[in-house]
Computed example of a mutant assay.
Amino acid sequence: MKIDLSGKTAIVTGSTVGIGHAIALGLARAGATVVINGRKQPAVDKAIADIAAAVPGASLKGVAADLGTAEGAAALVAAVPAPDILVNNVGIFNPQDFFEVPDEEWTRFFEVNVMSGVRLSRAYAQGMAERGWGRIVFISSESAINIPVEMVHYGFTKTAQLAVARGLAKRMAGTGVTVNSVLPGPTLSEGVAEMLKDEVAKTGHSLEEAGAAFVKAHRPSSIIQRAATVEEVANMVVYVCSKEASATTGAALRVDGGVVDTI
């Protein structure tokens, strides 16, 4: 299968690092014009330079905007009014005990992880429908199904994404616009690397080894018994964004290494 997204414009939110960056790179390799987003212009510029070096001739654009705010979402929409593909990837996580999470932190997680995707999907989906083709993808998590005891506030936002994506998919029925969720499991992104850095320093293990130890200790139902790479997650997202995925919509597609113990 050769995925060709030439002529399509794709926005990937939160794409300066991690899974988002890998998705942006994958879409650029498939020929899409890719819009890189992050909160700070220097990070956006660096991500564009890195992808341009990896994919000579790639068509890239950058928009620095904080999508945890309505103003930031409006700025992105003004800069890129009519994309064909929207990947709602931007998100935050932080292990914290339920009894120590204040109201404002619940609100912050909801604004960044959920409302960013709601605002952008609301702004773009109807235009996609008018043009007869579009792809919207929410990057959720296996934590949407296996709510992590150490991050209840995070799990709640990831479950909310599944609800929004499924409902919006039904709302867009028959339009040529598909809406799906992708659920990564533990993944060796920069955020996870930061979380594991003390373990790496203490044990002398590689990041991959520390990731595998974390998975075995905290996600023992994992079948692959390791953390995924960002590229492995990106591969699924690029497919879902493709023309070839036209019969896949309203789905929650797992790239969780088998962590979710269900058929």
Rank of each mutant, 00 (worst) to 15 (best):
L183A: 13
V237S: 00
G257V: 02
V112Y: 01
A234N: 08
N235W: 04
Q96T: 15
G185D: 06
S222H: 06
G91A: 15
P83C: 03
I51N: 06
D198P: 01
Q96K: 15
R226E: 02
F98L: 15
E111D: 15
H205T: 11
S221I: 00
A10Q: 07
A65M: 04
K40L: 07
V35Q: 01
G68E: 06
G68V: 05
H205C: 03
Q96A: 15
M128T: 13
T69E: 00
V55D: 02
R226Q: 09
Q41N: 03
G72F: 06
F99W: 05
A245H: 08
F93I: 05
F110C: 07
M1S: 11
G211L: 10
T262G: 09
G57I: 05
T187Q: 05
R122N: 07
I147C: 04
F109M: 11
S6F: 01
L60I: 04
A47E: 01
A252E: 08
V137F: 05
P148L: 12
Q225S: 04
E100Y: 13
L253M: 15
G134P: 06
M1H: 02
G18F: 13
N113Q: 13
K202W: 02
K8P: 05
E111N: 14
N235I: 02
S181D: 06
N146S: 09
V215M: 12
E100Q: 15
Q96V: 13
V17N: 15
A227I: 04
I224P: 00
I19P: 02
T9W: 04
I224G: 00
R122S: 02
N88I: 11
A47W: 10
E142H: 10
V238E: 05
T13W: 12
A160C: 10
V12E: 10
A123T: 00
